[in-house]
């Protein structure tokens, strides 16, 4: 497998900063766009998002109409009594929105956070097709 021996690329260490849209954030902290993997199965869509430093309790996920919003809040902790000598990454929240093209069973969304990775399981809603009869005029 080539996947196994592949080296992690430098760009994977970079965090992309969130550029403010029209709405400004109320928190003054930095926000980053988490890297994601999205895959689709027969019955569900799975989203994996890298959110290092995010505690499972501080993830906020909302689905409104077809827009899924992922927010991960980071409580930065700095080593006490030390001063920063070298910095390659910054600490901030994670935020990203997705527009879902498929109907999702909103009551059965499952979210877990493990080792700084958010896993969202979005089951597809069972399609309710309705035939519309056409009446003769």
């Amino acid at each position: 497998m080539t996947e196994e021996t592949k080296e992690l690329q430098l760009e994977q260490a970079e965090k992309q900063e969130l550029v403010e849209g029209e709405a400004e954030r109320t928190r003054s902290r930095l926000a980053f766009i988490p890297r994601v993997d999205i895959y689709e199965m027969n019955d569900a869509i799975v989203i994996l998002a890298d959110m290092p430093g995010v505690d499972p309790a501080s993830v906020d996920i909302t689905l409104e109409r077809n827009v899924l919003s992922i927010n991960g809040y980071v409580a930065p902790s700095y080593p006490e009594g030390y001063s920063l000598a070298w910095a390659e990454y910054r600490i901030g929240d994670f935020q990203r929105n997705f527009t879902l093209s498929q109907e999702i069973d909103q009551d059965n969304i499952e979210a877990t956070v493990k080792n700084g990775v958010l896993r969202l399981h979005l089951p597809k809603a069972t399609p309710t097709t309705r035939k519309i009869g056409i009446k003769d005029a």
């Binding site: 260490a13 965090k15 030390y82 001063s83 000598a85 910095a87 390659e88 990454y89």
Partner: peptide, 15 residues
């Protein structure tokens, strides 16, 4: 930030 030299990114604190 200084230019990244590799993965992962590191922050180093000293006293």
């Amino acid at each position: 930030l200084p230019v990244l030299r590799g993965y992962p990114a590191m922050n180093i604190w000293v006293n």
